[in-house]
Design a protein around this nucleic acid. Structure first.
Lengths: 192, 192, 192, 192
DNA sequence: AATGAATGAGATTTCATTCAT
DNA sequence: GATGAATGAAATCTCATTCAT
């Protein structure tokens, strides 16, 4: 069906070019549909983009949310946050990067706000996980939102850097690496 | 002189809108020169942008480089890296963010490569600092490039998050915060 | 039945937006039918519009025609012409205005000719009524078609002006007003 | 110069097709300039149209205003109103017709309001001339705005009818004709 | 050194119409 | 009878770039 083809093509085109460089012509071309068909299924470029993010990216977020709701130790929770975030940035790389980094002006105001909210919500959610750990005394007394924003940026940047420089590190290795970086900074340790 | 006015205006416009949304019209308007004047001084949009980055951003990088060349402890070096990076992301926020995050296709290929190289060089430079620490046995056995990319992303993301959400934290506080996060993760500590 | 719903909706949409701004989408939406249904019942936009005019507007014209065929004094005939025209322009305001004023190019040539003919026929019909009065010596020796076109334009313009400026004059008042304007100009009077 | 060529071409295209059917492509083609040139000189279609009307039509209105300010008898004033209006509708036929009849929705709101105001102002101005005559007791006790709107509509409609039906009446004849129609209706005459 | 009028390729969007079901 | 997904031509508008002065 056209709508599905359009969404697939749009994910590719937005991912490869960023929001502003992506053109509706290119999306239609890749989806193998007429330009008008895009506007039959979506009101416009901004809403098409929003749909991608809310239908693709949001799902990932919900998956993380679900995965973390269980009664896990903080260690395990952080381990999973790292894992899911790497999923997000390595697999939906383009889109996630746009949402976390390229949301500037020039997008339909209403859509822009919604996407910014998505990003903030996500960071707040991670911050809450950390906050809990703080209450329990496992974590340093840090500003959890700042820490959450930092973690997301770190994972995105690193994933991006390694992807665009085509280095190959095993997924496992990266997960353990960032887990160590993060926890050994956040957890109280004897030496401090 | 026109050239100076143009560069100042261009920094503002690129910072506020990102590379693609920034328009030569707007830059000329803000610089109070005619549009043709832009093309008298610069071959095109991409080269104008490159000039900004190489003349503005590069200087900052060089300053960091110089500041770190001295014979300092690793602790002090990291402290300064954090400080300079926060400078970069809080003061030249727009431009630095573009260089680290928005460099997609659609920019003149030659210029793009040059800017990407700038980014990579910077990360490699930071990685070298870390590498040294590793040799000295002060640092864990980590992939230094991955760590460097992560650090830059963390600082950018956090700076960005807090700027756009208009929270106000003292600069000092942020510096100490990230220093702790980073070092206590990277340094060997007794508890591990 | 769909056809009836379409005609009702089309009258509204054309009246509100004029021929070119009216869209088939809007008509289908308001008629609560699928867009394809419009094309099942009518060959296209122009023919749909023609149908409205010929089925709605024409009826009004025929009513006037019938009302005037009776053996009335010229005074009474003009009084009725004024009344019916005000009906037309105040009640079917939108459509009548389009037919009398907005028929430009860009409508299917064949349909356009037919609608122009409708307008001309109507003016000719009024002209004939006046012509009769001229023969009887009650009327000045005027060009009756010019006069008829002028009368229609006067009534349309006045109706339109007062509707869009939301002044409120009683219908009766307007009728008498225009009757006086017209007759006292057309009838021979002692003072001339 | 381009701007002049554009205005000339635009007058033609708008006149021939009405506002909505007129296309910027067509205007550029006829002006022998590139499409972009239109947008260099005018912000958009609506403003281009407004410029035409305010620079062309408005001048005519001012000319009438000036011509009537002199100390003339009401008879002479009305004679001149008729003459100038016929000028307007026969010479700037297309544009004037659009302003008086085709101003519907779908034009930039701000521009639309300005043009509607132009039309209303003109009618109010004519109404004032009539009002004066009423004060002097030369005119019947009529609603002067209604009368003014009617007169304009009558002249427009008649001019239009005769132009599109390519009848040929001398200008002089038409002037005298409408003068008689109007005055003999508006002036008190012995027989009433 | 500087200008600004002019360009034209390309972007988003609209909409009457077609057609398989 | 009726549907609605799909189309593609055409519309408005943007903007980096060129060039004569």
């Amino acid at each position: 069906m056209s709508k599905v083809k359009i969404i697939h093509a749009a994910v590719d085109v937005f991912s490869e070019n960023g929001y502003h460089r992506a053109s509706m012509d290119e999306i239609a071309l890749r989806a193998n549909v007429a330009k008008g068909t895009l506007y039959y299924h979506f009101p416009g470029k901004a809403q098409l983009f929003k749909t991608l993010v809310v239908q693709g990216f949001q799902e990932v977020i919900d998956k993380i949310r679900a995965d973390l709701q269980a009664d896990l130790t903080l260690e395990e929770q952080i381990r999973r946050i790292v894992r899911h975030n790497l999923d997000l940035f390595l697999e939906s790389s383009g889109l996630a990067h746009i949402v976390f980094n390229e949301l500037s002006n020039g997008i339909d105001q209403e859509v822009l706000e919604e996407l910014k909210k998505l990003r903030i919500d996500y960071i707040h959610f991670l911050a809450e996980v950390l906050e809990e750990g703080k209450q329990e005394g496992v974590l340093r007394d840090v500003n959890c939102q700042l820490a959450a924003a930092g973690i997301v940026g770190m994972l995105d940047s690193a994933a991006n850097y390694f992807m665009s420089n085509t280095h190959e590190l095993s997924r496992d290795h990266m997960e353990r690496f960032f887990y160590t970086i993060i926890t050994s900074g956040l957890f109280m340790t004897a030496g401090e």
